[in-house]
Design a protein around this nucleic acid. Structure first.
Lengths: 276, 276
DNA sequence: CAAAATACGTAACATACGATACAGCGCTCC
DNA sequence: GGAGCGCTGTATCGTATGTTACGTATTTTG
C-alpha cells in the first residue's frame, strides 16, 4: 500500500541506476521542495543532468514533469490543510477519546483560520461594519443562516438599521431596492454554494453595496463581488462540514465592532435597557 | 515587523485594487499552494487575468514571478523543516491586538467544556436524539436561538419530525399540546436566562417530554427539569458572552447522531437528493 | 577480453510560460 | 457633468522550460 510519493520513491530507489538514485536522495533530503523547482534547478541540486531527472520521474510512473509536480502539490495541500495529522506527536496528552478527533479538528480549524486572518483585516472589517453610513443586512445559506442570525442579533443591539434577511428568495431580493453605496451586506456561504445567494450578491454589488463574505477555504463564487472575504476552515471528521471556525470569527467581529462603537453603543444599550 | 509573505499580504491587502485583492484572498485562502502554481492557474483560480497576478506580486515588492515563487518556497522549506515553529502566533507578542486573547479564551472554553463532558454523556444524548420515538423540537433564547436553528437544520435532514420553534412565545407555547413522553425538546438558554423559556420547559417537563439543555456553566434554572444538561464555558474578553463552545458541542452531537443513524440516515439523504 | 546493452550527458527543438504594450472602462475629483 | 487618472483585460512577444534525439561513456555478459 503506497500512498505518498516519498514512499513510492523509497520503495523503488533500490532498483534505480546511480544518477537517478542521486536525484531520489536529493529529493528525499528536503522533500518535497526540490521537486517543485524547475528541472534545471533540480538537476543542479542533484548534480546530474536534466534528462536524468526526467527519466527519474518517468520511472516513478509519471507521464511528464508537470504531472509529477502536480502530484507533489496535491500531497502538500493535503498536508497543509490538516495540520493535525502532522502534529500527531506527543502533544496534548490525556484526552484521546471518541469525541477528541472532532474537537481536535475543530480547534485546528480555528487556529488555521485565524492564522490566515490578520488583526488588521479584522479591524478593517469591523470598521466597515461600525462605520457604515447606511444599513447593515445579513443573510446566510442553508446551514449558515443561523450564523447570520446570531451576528444580527448582536449587531442590532449596538447600532440601528441592522436587518437579517430571511424567508423566501423573492422577499430579500426585493429589498435590494433599498440598498446603496452606504450599505453593507454580510453574506455567509459555504459549499455547496447557493445559486440564489450568488445572484443576490451580484445584484447587490452592482448597486454599490459593500459585501463582507464568510465562506470556506475554497471560496464561494461570491468572493468575486466581495469587499472583504473571510475564509474559514470547515473540514472535520464528520458527515458534515463545520461552521465553528466561522462562528468564532463572527463572535470576534461582534466584539471588535462593539469596542469601536463603545461610546455610541453604550448609550444605546442603556436606552434599550430602559425600554424593558 | 513583517516576516512572512502572508503577513505582508494581509498588511497591504487594504490598499489594493479589487482585482489584486481577489488574487490576494485566493492565495491566502489556501496558502501558499496557489502561489506555487503557474500564473495562468493562479489567475484562473482567482478569476482574474494573468497581468493582474503579475501586478499583484509586483506590488508585494517582487521583481518577477519566479522570485515571488522562490520566496514562497523558502518560507515553506523553513516551515517544513521545523514543525515546532508551526505553533500559532509566536510572533505578535502582546500587541494590543485584542484578537488573540479572544481566540485563546475561546479555545480554552472549548477544552474546558469538553473536559467536563464525558464521551458517555455525549453518546447518551446522541442516543436520546437518535432513538426518540416521537418528535424533536428545538428552541433557544435571544442569542442562542440561531444555535437551535443550526442544529435543527442538520437533524431535520437525517430524521423526520424535527421542528424548530420560532416566533412569538404564544406560538410555541401552544405547540406544547402536541408533545408527550416520546418527544424530545432541545433548549438553549444562557444568561440572562429567559423567563419565557423556563415556563416553557416546566410545562414540557410536566407533560413528560425529555429535555436536553444547552446552558452556561452557571446553569439555567431549566436544568432542574432537564434530562441531560450540557454546560459550556462562555467567558471571553468581550462585552458579550461566547456561545462558541456550545456551538461546537452542538456540531459534535450532530455528528454523533448522524453516525448512529447512519443506515437510516443515508437512505433518507439519498431520497432528499432525488427530490431536488 | 570482446561485444552488447544500458546509462548518461550534450545539444537542438517546440511548447508554454511569464512579461509587456495598449486600449477600453469605470471611478473619482473638480 | 466633464476631464483626468487608475485599474483591468486582450493580444502579442521573447524566453525559459520541458522534452527528445543522438553520441559517448560505463557497465554487464558470454
Amino acid at each position: 500500500m503506497i500512498s505518498s510519493i516519498s514512499e513510492l520513491i523509497s520503495d523503488r530507489i533500490g532498483a534505480m541506476p546511480a544518477g537517478e538514485r542521486r536525484a531520489a536522495q536529493t529529493l528525499i533530503a528536503n522533500y518535497p521542495l526540490t521537486g517543485l523547482k524547475t528541472v534545471a534547478e533540480f538537476s543542479a541540486a542533484a548534480g546530474v543532468s536534466s534528462p536524468t531527472i526526467l527519466r527519474f520521474v518517468a520511472r516513478l510512473g509519471f507521464q511528464n514533469y508537470p504531472e509529477f509536480q502536480s502530484a507533489l502539490q496535491d500531497e502538500l495541500a493535503a498536508q497543509l490543510q490538516s495540520p493535525a495529522s502532522r502534529t500527531l506527536n506527543p502533544a496534548s496528552p490525556g484526552s484521546s477519546s471518541a469525541v477528541s478527533p472532532m474537537l481536535e479538528a475543530t480547534l485546528d480549524n480555528m487556529r488555521e483560520t485565524f492564522r490566515h486572518l490578520s488583526d488588521k483585516q479584522l479591524a478593517d472589517i469591523a470598521a466597515t461594519l461600525a462605520g457604515r453610513r447606511g444599513k447593515t443586512f445579513l443573510i446566510g445559506g442553508r446551514f449558515t443562516d443561523p450564523l447570520a442570525r446570531y451576528m444580527a442579533a448582536h449587531l442590532a443591539i449596538i447600532q440601528p438599521d441592522v436587518y437579517h434577511l430571511a424567508g423566501q428568495e423573492s422577499i430579500w431580493r426585493d429589498r435590494l431596492i433599498d440598498m446603496g453605496k452606504r450599505d453593507v451586506v454580510v453574506i455567509f456561504d459555504i459549499r455547496r454554494y447557493q445559486e440564489s445567494l450568488v445572484r443576490f450578491a451580484e445584484k447587490a454589488h452592482q448597486r454599490g453595496v459593500q459585501i463582507v463574505l464568510f465562506t470556506d477555504q475554497w471560496l464561494s463564487p461570491i468572493a468575486r463581488f466581495a469587499r472583504h472575504v473571510i475564509a474559514g476552515r470547515t473540514a472535520v471528521p464528520s458527515a458534515w462540514d463545520s461552521s465553528a471556525a466561522l462562528f468564532v470569527v463572527a463572535e470576534t467581529l461582534i466584539g471588535a465592532v462593539t469596542r469601536q462603537l463603545e461610546a455610541a453603543g453604550a448609550k444605546r444599550i442603556r436606552d434599550l435597557e430602559s425600554l424593558r
